[in-house]
Design a protein around this nucleic acid. Structure first.
Lengths: 201, 201, 201, 201
DNA sequence: GATGAATGAGGGTTCATTCAT
DNA sequence: CATGAATGAACCCTCATTCAT
């Protein structure tokens, strides 16, 4: 059972770092110090292993939001929690967001129905929040999917581009560039989104 | 010379759709109706072909912004042009943004110095805009790289997730979901960014 | 494990017959009735396979000389054993000598440090023999490497040119040519070398 | 016409250094700064180019010997000239000998009838020398081909192994090794061969 | 003479996967 | 649970060669 976990952990890291196609089963097996055939014993095949990782990740996010949001009634508060949950996850472990970016770029070519199902449940919570806001006359009607992708897109790019931004500074002596960061990203993002949801465009 | 262009066009489409690793030279050659060896004759190898595509794309964006921004003095106006240029490009041809998302996810593993150089020139223009705003007391000091990635991140996710959003609606009879879009995305994004640049966080 | 041996045997024969570059992995795999990927499983790559073969061959010669030479004290006798060992090997299996000739012709472009190491150990034995001869006033000081290459060069050309010599006779009705061979080659070579080592040139 | 010569010269050097199969037409064209198609215009194909080089080389040697040997009557003197001609050639330009070693190793797989014809003429001169010696009771009957290959084999190994011998010294701090060379190689080789031809083995 | 573009065949190598043990 | 051996398909790339200009 130990090996199973090691495989999952290594695979996740590698998939995040290099993408699905650039990650070989050989690499995973070496990284996890597990025989290659053992991966097939535990996960049937590569697609399955990848899906399992995606499912675990999104379930973890789902549960995190779910547990916090239930006791909340205020829609603005709910939105804050939604954003915070994603941001906290991105700061703690950005691997999932790297994988997600590639999936968006590929129109979700590797997303199984199961993963999409959980994803919809997450979206459903955001929809609930927005609907409540609309019912109370606080928010205008907006497509939850768009709101979601703006939140996740901003967080993903902000967090995942850190290494690249640093590289730019290092490689090109771009030292004179101001490196002032954005302060409390989650907070600002919340304000931006709330403003967007309030504006009747 | 005709074949060379066909190769570039097909390769760009395929790289955008499936990513660098999932795109085979065989596929490109068949799509472009060109002998596989001809690709190597023109582009030396896969990495080189990929870089050439990236370089062409980013140069095209650079030139587009450059040509518009020179005659502008007002920093807010400059920012608008910057955002519009990217958004217009994304609407016209989102392939580059798909490729970009994957590069961010991989910390730019395939980005050559040449590409990064042009990228820095683009960033330089945004830096100039922000600096002018700061000098005139309109903007607060912010790192241009972060501002840039927020712009591009939002545009990328918004534009590239369209297919996935549609898929969610289709596959899951998620019909009751409101499909109201965001209206003028470029306009809204501009307002959000300006607000962020004005706030002294 | 059976397949591994078959691959080694076939590869050696093909490398000897056609040279490193003219021998394809496909050819080896077909000859050994082994899947091509299996060669890579066992030997990592072509260079490695080639090196392994070279190493095996030279180790075999080394061991053969080593086991005979230890109990010998007389330097002239030692020299005889050294020459005999090579000649016997060439008569029994000339493949190694064909490979060696090509390596000499390429300045040992495919020789790894490991192979060179064993080769030096072989040379060391000849050096020991010569040194003993010098100490006892029988031999003059000569570079063991030159003596070695003369021995091996003569044996290689004599043994490996047999087919070509026959071809000349067959193709050109060169029948009137005397076909008297050299008699006991090893014996004659020994006498020549000893004479050379004794002469103070 | 200039390019033709450049191609020949570069091809010869490359064939000698790396062998027939490891030398590509691309490489030759780049080295000679000639368009690849031009090589085909001048030499029809790779085999032909290679043969032309071999033919030129062996003709040059043949002519060198021929011009010296005609006025000689004494067989021992003739033998000396024969050996000297090869040795001088090897010292001046060892490329041909490297090519020859590989051909021997491959049983002359690339040798055309034309090349073999000239080669036989060279051999014929040696045969004449030996025959004269036999007629005068100085030499015993020996196969000229064997005598020839011993001469050429020794010279080839001695001359072509120089780089490898140096490498052994450099790479392995084999410094304590005596580096005394063989003195006048041609002279010694002559004595050895004469002795062999005189001995009635 | 000389060239750039083009091609089909084959090169070495890696892949995801299976199976007997 | 775990492993070493084995496989067929596919991958990137290079080859010798041709042809129109």
């Amino acid at each position: 059972m130990e090996k199973r976990v090691a495989i999952l952990r290594c695979a996740k890291r590698l998939f995040a770092k290099k993408g699905y196609d650039a990650t070989s089963m050989d690499e995973i097996s070496k990284c996890a110090d597990a025989n290659k055939a053992l991966i097939y014993y535990h996960f049937k095949n590569k697609e399955n292993l990848y899906s399992k990782i995606l499912l675990d990740s999104i379930c973890s996010i789902h549960d995190s939001i779910r547990s916090q949001i239930d006791e909340i009634d205020d829609p603005e508060n709910g939105l804050k929690i939604y954003i915070d949950a994603f941001y906290a996850q991105a700061v703690k472990d950005e691997t999932f967001f790297r994988i997600l970016m590639r999936e968006i770029a590929s129109d979700g070519s590797h997303l199984t129905g199961e993963v999409l199902g959980v994803f919809l449940k997450v979206l459903g919570m955001l929809e609930g929040i927005i609907k409540k806001g609309v019912d109370r006359g606080i928010f205008c009607e907006k497509d939850a999917k768009i709101v979601h992708f703006l939140i996740v897109g901003t967080i993903s790019f902000y967090q995942c581009s850190k290494a690249l931004r640093k590289k730019l500074v290092d490689d090109f002596q771009n030292k004179e560039t101001l490196l002032k960061d954005m302060g409390n990203v989650s907070e600002q993002l919340y304000e931006i989104i709330v403003r967007g949801l309030k504006s009747d465009v």
